[in-house]
Write a protein that binds this DNA or RNA. Sequence first.
RNA 1: GCCCGGGUGGUGAAAUUGGUAUACACGAGGGACUUAAAAUCCCUUGGAUUCAUACUCCGUGCGGGUUCGAGUCCCGCCCCGGGCACCA
Length: 851
Amino acid sequence: MYDHKKIERKWQKEWEKSGLYKTKDDKKKKKYYILDMFPYPSGAGLHVGHPKGYIATDVFARMKMMQKYNVLHPMGWDAFGLPAENYAIENKVHPRQAVEENIKKFKNQLLKLGFTYDWAREINTTDPGYYKWTQWIFLQMFKKGLAYESNEPVNWCPSCKTVLSNEDLEGGKCERCGSDIERKPMRQWVLKITDYADRMLNDLEKLPDWEESIKEMQRNWIGRSEGAIVQFSIFNFQFSIDVFTTRPDTLFGATYFVMSPEHPLVKKLTTPEQKKDVEEYIKKTAKKSELERTDLAKEKTGVFTGAYAINPVNQEKIPVWIADYVLMGYGTGAIMAVPGHDKRDFDFAREYEICIRCVTSPRSINDLVVKYRSVDDSALKPSSSTEKTKKLTGEAIAYWVDSKTPEDSFKRFRERVEDGIECYTGEGVNINSGFLDGLETEKAKEEMIEWLEKNKVGKKAVNYKLKDWVFSRQRYWGEPIPIIHCKKCGAVAVSEKDLPVKLPEVKQYEPTGTGESPLANIKEWVNTKCPKCGGPGKRETNTMPQWAGSSWYWLRYIDPKNEKALVDKKKEKYWSPVDFYVGGAEHATRHLIYARFWHKFLFDIGAVNYPEPFTRLQHVGLILAEDGRKMSKRWGNVINPDEIVEKYGADSMRVYEMFMGPFSGACAWSTNGLIGARKFLEKVAKLKTRIEKVKMADGLSNLLHKTIKKVGEDIEEFKLNTAISTMMILANKMEETERIDLNAYESFLKILSPFAPHLAEELWHELGHKESIFKEKWPEYDKKLIKDETINLVVQVNGKLRDTISVAVDISEKEAKEEVMKSEKVKKWLEGKEVVKIIFVKGRLINIVVK
RNA sequence: GCCCGGGUGGUGAAAUUGGUAUACACGAGGGACUUAAAAUCCCUUGGAUUCAUACUCCGUGCGGGUUCGAGUCCCGCCCCGGGCACCA
């Protein structure tokens, strides 16, 4: 038994004293910047799941340190935002005070785990010296027209009493509190993230060391689709309405027109006869929650407005409907309905008995497969699954139409499509389409766009699911938006020399629910002078969302005290980009989208040197409670790391959490597993008693060097669980060895030290060393020593294992054959059989094929 | 519905990417030490068959296929997790 309490405290103090983790801007050394997603200092404190990612980056950082990189591994606090504020309201303390207390609590917990953080670089997003630069970035965006005011309908959370961005929703509900959100028009600040959509999408290809799943989530979130805007004039009116479509080739098949009930022109074009019905329908939809409206299972509903639109390509008069399956938030809020080739339009047309016209006929069975392909992936390279669906072809369609031969089923299907009985969303050849007749879909699209542009009734267009970032919150605990409203000059930027606009003290920080933040009540703060004309002005009272401070924080660690710039450009050039970023997958479409957006903007204005902030990205899997559920106060199954550290030691916890399973997977906590990790460490400590200066046994040096190789490679690939199991094998082997060679043991301590830093340091010093083990060089493996001289050659007969024989590793095929034939076991299986051929894989196996 | 991951012992999981399936650990069973227990150490631990830890057969969600050889590749299906979702 080793005394973890004593040695862990001792070395934590010692490391702090000697400044082991002080990061200097030493430009002669190669840099490595490894970053954790910084936490919210919530009231509950850390549970054992939170530090998992921090432990992993710490292991990595320590190895890089020993590989003589200049390592930056910082930590800070993302302390603005709703959780901190709600905690403060609940506990009747000021958010600032709550945040201070929580940070203290968090930091204490982290300190006990022995991380390499350079606390001299600690940052806090609620520190005025920090948010000065968050505000500064906002002002630069404002100046470039990327931050603008809008009155569009937005997501309003009635419980949190603030607007939310699309990224803050989860299945139509508030991500924080789970309330149904309401759509209502409100004045708000919006950041034009859509200007960066294409670059954010394309640059994902330049990030090979990001996990594919996260890149895919971002692609889906950005949701680029190519198509056209088409202008439909409204019969008997002077205006026209635009629609967006990805299928301009089907324009001849548009048999009706649908507008979202919220579309601002609905009232204008509704005829007096239809007015009552339309108003009723609008009222009905307004009452529905976002969730009800987007429920796919429900039947499509709508109402005829009495108006007609003119199809620009054939001058046909088509009825204008309103229906809530058309969303105001996507495209133009109005669509041309082509029921023959769009499933939703088809369902609607069936319901209301509107004409269905086929304009695309499938050419062959191969076309039908395209039916399975999503329409909007045209801009991207085909994903692997797209390739798969292509191979479905014959059988799939036969199964689908329930017919004997694929050809027969295809014929029947085509007839149904052309009769408008079947909805066909795939590609094919245009029919009933005037000048497009006979053209294939791709060609027809091009021709139609050309025609639209020539006749000035439409144009090529790209549309995104990504919406501009709703950037204001009607809450207290956030960065004030540095804008002054002036009656004469409009919205005016606060002068840069007046930054930061400090968040004022306020008596009531509960949300008002009025669409203004509590700041609106502080008259002496709100009323100020317009920086432009000197006349009376009012400060913007909305604050920034919680994501603001985290959208650039990695830059601040590089130069945390700089008062002249958000980061010194030379320092930034040295340290950026972040080489390795580790954190939760829940940030894939929130923080990581915003962060890339801000970074690209800073790159454009010359504030940083690189267009992408994070070179490598790895997501950390959850640690579940012992009962397999998420750790939560509600279930009472939370495990506090402090208790684990107290009872079993930080090193045990570190080793266990890395050993549990693959890093990105979710895994349930097991106290027995933790004890297993502790036993391993004790075994390592005990081995020391058997150390002598002896020549390493051959078997041991071979295993040692293999272990050094594998541990190094595994850490690099973040396969930390197998790194540990490899070291366990070495420890077991050493345990069997009577006298352990000092050099072998020291090398072992070095590769173990990133995982169990306190114990490794202690044992290292007990061996008589005066300097820290972390100043040692990471051991290198000897290529000669990892080579096996003999191997167990696997002997198979007809692919089945029958024997293994020990032979020289480089045995020739001929020799191997001779050896194998001597084996009694093999002979038995060859009896009375004819050897057809023998397959020999050098250094691995020999397979005798018999008949 | 679409997209991305997965499915291997009682459990967490390994498997050099097509070459000895179940490493390492947990749990369980047995033993040693002990008056006893804890701790520690040793042995056993996929299933069937068997006195046998001899031999053999079966075995990586299910059904086919390719191959000398498949957990790994191909085709079809089932289930689990995550993301998006009336996106025109």
